[in-house]
Design a protein around this nucleic acid. Structure first.
Lengths: 233, 233
DNA sequence: CGCATCCAGATTGCATACAATATCTGGGCG
DNA sequence: CGCCCAGATATTGTATGCAATCTGGATGCG
């Protein structure tokens, strides 16, 4: 058996937002499916049947179909002509490749953000950092993961580069597929807050080189932890 | 008037490959439309009407619709709900942003290619370089542009990183939208061949740092020429 | 004369029907 | 006993129909 439990489909409707107005059905289905994949509800190699998904979401095959195509373009699913779509598997090699690119792009984002240093960005990042400290104390890992995403999103928006933003968005989706958060690793949460702080200070000083260096170091460390976790803590 | 000449639609069928088998209609339409946009046949802000395109391509609206969604996801088109799709405009700001990211990614690709240095890559790049020299002598700009694309594609394949490859592919599409090639700029073709050579030599020496440096310099220079051309030679 | 409102047309969004194709199963043959 | 081929089945690919929604202009009112 290489598919998910049948009941996995039952969990899907819960990912759909309540009042979905016309013209956003496809978008809603895309997001719902993506979240389901990222959450691991639909594990790698699980079949994504247009008919079953349409039935589960109570929509027709058309929006489901378009959603599957988008997810395939994003690399989260793999389409086989005339046969079906599966959730894309994630090899260790892929994960390493991901972090290599991510180190580069996050470094660039930090550099650009430092050079531009748009008003409010430093405060915004610091505020998220503060909330992350609180979440660390409370050992609230899901909240930490959310805030971490928010921090990185704020950083790349501060970089104000549409292409960089798009690529980092795709990287974020790929990263979120990785099993469990590295933030649950003992002591990692404190480290992350600290490393984020180093980046923010460099941005505040408008030191592009230093910001890039710190952001890259942050990502290298993240990769190390990730590999450690994957290879059995 | 902000649309293309009506006859622009007449040119579209020529972009469709001849024997398109079932299961690849959408793909064929996507590629055809993309090429038409990149060639400037469909200029920025031109309307992309599902009905007209379907009629021009002699297919139904469904594959056209999916093609438009993909192009929109790639950033080549902009969809407005319930109203229509237009070819995305390209501001100078976007172009600069593009080259910033491209410098980073091409640099990374060169570094990875140098470190891996897969067998055959250097020969392949050199051979393309040789053909570019010939095309330069013949002043065959379209051929030069093709070979240039081929060279960069070979480089990123040599880097063997799926995410990097995907992102550079998107960058390539965006770059190809820019009006006219920088390769027609006087003396630029020779420079490009020379700069490519510097990258290849660094790869041959397996010097990742140098390869990245040379690739980034190459992209910076490309950006300079591009800006010069855009601002009136 | 300006502005809000309403109506008509155009266009996409979604649903459904049909056609084509790949996979799988079972039987026959070497 | 294994291999190959044919038919059945499951699944997607494409076409088309209808409904919702947005735009633009005409119209009536202040």
């Amino acid at each position: 058996m290489d598919g998910p439990d049948k009941s996995a489909y039952d969990a899907l409707p819960g990912y759909l937002p309540g009042g979905t107005s016309r013209g956003r059905t496809t978008e809603a289905v895309t997001d719902a499916l993506r979240e389901a994949i990222l959450d691991g509800v639909m594990p790698p190699n699980a079949w994504l049947r247009e008919d079953e998904l349409a039935h589960a979401f109570k929509v027709s095959r058309t929006p489901v179909r378009e959603a599957l195509r988008r997810l395939a373009d994003e690399g989260l699913a793999v389409k086989t002509t005339n046969h079906g779509t599966v959730v894309a598997p994630l090899s260790l090699e892929d994960i390493l490749a991901l972090y290599v690119v991510r180190e580069d792009l996050e470094g660039l984002a930090a550099r650009l953000a430092a050079v531009r240093c748009p008003p409010g960005l430093v405060d915004q990042l610091d505020e998220i950092g503060e909330r992350m400290k609180q979440a660390t104390k409370a050992a609230d890992v899901p909240q930490l993961a959310r805030l971490n995403l928010e921090w990185h999103r704020a950083l790349r928006e501060g970089a104000a580069n549409v292409y960089l933003g798009r690529f980092l968005g795709q990287v974020e989706h790929a990263v979120r597929r990785l099993p469990s958060s590295t933030l649950s690793h003992p002591g990692r949460a404190d480290e992350v807050v600290c490393e984020h702080g180093a980046v923010v200070r460099a941005i505040e000083a408008r030191d592009g080189d230093e910001a890039e260096r710190q952001a890259r170091a942050h990502m290298r460390r993240a990769r190390e932890i990730r590999v450690a976790v994957l290879l059995g803590t």
